[in-house]
Design a protein around this nucleic acid. Structure first.
Lengths: 390, 390
DNA sequence: CGCATTCGTGGTCAAGACCAACAAATACAT
DNA sequence: ATGTATTTGTTGGTCTTGACCACGAATGCG
């Protein structure tokens, strides 16, 4: 038991199995044997231990119409949940997310004021308490994951600066931990979105991903390199919106010495269609329907600058997939081919070869899934660590 | 022996020890015990096995003037060598590099013509043969590492495009392997330079590094993320020179729709000091001595554009250290503080906090050490794999 | 010259994964 | 319906690996 040594083999193998059934969904023991390369007996032993610890369940074999003895199906225990939280300007979303990515309960709380970190923690805690005496009575909650639109210090979950929430140096992780009594992790919303698209979405299983999301408040981004999210030294990596991409023609420049999110912005799109606000499908429909020269030209202008920014990222990171979300998906998806061609004209040909520019697919669940994933990370790394072994 | 399982514990521990003495230099067995956390007896066993396999040597203890029984010193076997190769426009450098980073022999072959991939392979092979019947008679050569100034496909060591060598789709890895009978690995020169600076140079031990090198033929770069070099999907990552950074004032633009290496270039520096060519120290001295307004202005202009490019990289990658080499070091090192301030004015404040902009320190050995490191990678990952265990 | 300290050595032990043999559950052929 | 082939779970034993322990060796210090 007292293992001062580095890498506990048992722990690694348990984690491998749990991660497999987490990522791939329910798998038979035979399938686990195949994909891990471990022995049948070992799998039986490991799965048994995970089942006793309450993180997986064994079910009757599927009628698989194959020769041979059927193999029991191993699935994640559905009572294991994480709480995902996403504070925004106009609403606070709280949800319970299963290790199987099910979302049994979810609450979007509309706000008429900017929510403070303290209020966020209080609301989350009361929401959890309410659920615990109701739909989540028999659940085991492993932790809270927060997706925050701003700069988050990885070290201690301090929100350095979330301009639209007006949070500055907010110790949100500690606040939530104290209010809920649960371990909490905090991440940048775009980075967690990138994780979600990498694990389950448009870039599933891709080891080199550039993700850019266009929201009402700007452009955020996340990177996957070596199959892992990139935090950087402080956890602030991925801020493409603050970059200054080259603008070939001065006529296309709108802001003096502006950054990407000044030039490529949702507000400018709303302006050309003459709306004060609109949700994403509405904006997309308006732009698609509009034949006003100004609207067409503005979309083309933004696509051009976006292409330069993407080319810069492609040159440096040589990703397999670029995923675009939010209004960036809107301006891109009308003609992905031509956007890809525009990027190709600006980036190195070799880096373009394997490149696929895609639109994000996970929709509004993306941040919740990413945040839950972050909360589950501890359990996935050490499945027996958080509970007494059976 | 037949271990179909994933992570062989023995192999991992052997690799840990070998990597330690490789990176840190000779270490006592006691020091190994401390830094691995393994047991004394285990270390003795592992070191013994490595010694029998001929990858490490045990030497008499250092007179350490400490109480207690002295501990034998474990060092890398100096007969274990890799061949490092660096083809350039005007010369081909071939060297033998020890696992201890010693360079027992080195040859710089001046060229009066562009060398072809086939000729490169032939010259390397004959050079190795010559050394083998001379200074390297008792050496064991593990492989050949090539640092090529161009785009290299990681998968198969194909040089996609090395514009200055005029190599296009050159299967250099296979050519060298066939000519020498040794396993070969090929890498981009800047990426290998980044590896060298990360392991032994200005960014030693830093997990998040951006490296930019300015050469006569342009600007190359390499990234270290998660403590590992970043290749990207095809191995082409790091091409900062092809990026289009924002240029705030049109008066600072020199090339129409130019990329970074059109604007920030050694040729333009040589032009303002009125020289057709010069080596790096000479150029640095000329620029330092010059009081011509044109020269001062050109350095300032290039520093400004470089600052924008660095700020873009810092926003996206949030590195701990930025390392500048070649003429970029020359234009930066006169006043690193002000360059850092210029980057800080353009990048996000949070990302600047932990950032250190440094000048590369490994000089001309950098590429050889990086190339050798790549060749050694196989041995370091599996110390017993390449020879029959003793 | 004895003592404390540090370290190598050989033996023993436990954890964990593999292996072989057997039993169970299914599809398929007859 | 019945037997056979196939696949997989189960069980007990084996092997590798590293931890732990006791002892002796080598050093500095008083």
């Amino acid at each position: 038991m007292i293992d001062l040594t580095a890498d506990n083999v048992r722990q690694r193998n348990l984690a491998r199995i749990l991660r497999l059934v987490h990522l791939e969904g329910p798998l038979s023991r035979a399938a686990l044997t195949e994909s891990t390369g471990l022995n049948r007996s070992t799998i039986a032993d490991l799965v048994g231990q995970l089942a006793r610890a309450g993180v997986v369940e064994e079910r009757a074999p599927d009628p698989s119409r194959r020769v041979g003895r059927p193999s029991p199906v191993v699935a994640v225990d559905s009572r294991l949940l994480a709480i995902a939280v996403n504070p925004e300007v106009d609403a606070l979303t709280v949800a319970a997310v299963g290790l199987d990515r099910s979302i049994p309960v979810r609450e979007r709380i509309d706000l008429d004021h900017l929510i403070s970190p303290e209020e966020t923690a209080a609301v989350v805690a009361s929401q959890i308490a309410e659920w615990r005496s109701g739909p989540l009575a028999d659940a085991r909650i492993v932790g809270v994951g927060l997706a925050v639109p701003g700069l988050v210090r990885a070290l201690d979950g301090l929100v350095r600066n979330a301009p639209h929430l007006n949070w500055i140096d907010a110790p949100i992780r500690d606040l939530v931990e104290r209010a809920t009594g649960l371990p909490a992790v905090v991440g940048n919303d775009a980075t967690l979105g990138a994780v979600a698209e990498h694990l389950y979405g448009a870039a599933r299983g891709i080891d080199n991903v550039v993700y850019l999301n266009g929201g009402a408040s700007g452009i955020g981004g996340g990177l996957i390199v070596h199959g892992m999210p990139v935090g950087g030294a402080g956890g602030y990596a991925g801020e493409f919106g603050q970059n200054r991409p080259g603008i070939a023609s001065e006529r296309d420049r709108r802001a003096r010495d502006g950054v990407l999110e000044d030039e490529v912005s949702r507000a400018r799109l709303l302006a050309v269609v003459g709306r004060p606000s609109a949700d994403e499908p509405t904006l997309a429909a308006l732009l698609a329907a509009s034949t006003l020269p100004d609207a067409v030209a503005e979309v083309a202008r933004q696509r051009g600058i976006l292409a330069t920014a993407l080319a810069n990222a492609v040159n440096v990171l040589n990703p397999s997939v670029v995923v675009l979300g939010g209004f960036l998906a809107t301006i891109a998806e009308r003609d992905l081919e031509s956007l890809s061609a525009a990027v190709g004209a600006l980036a190195m040909p070799a880096s373009m070869e394997g490149l696929d520019i895609r639109v994000a697919v996970l929709a509004e669940d993306r941040l919740l899934i990413g945040a839950a994933e972050a909360a589950f990370a501890v359990v996935l790394a050490d499945p027996l660590g958080h509970t007494a072994p059976g």
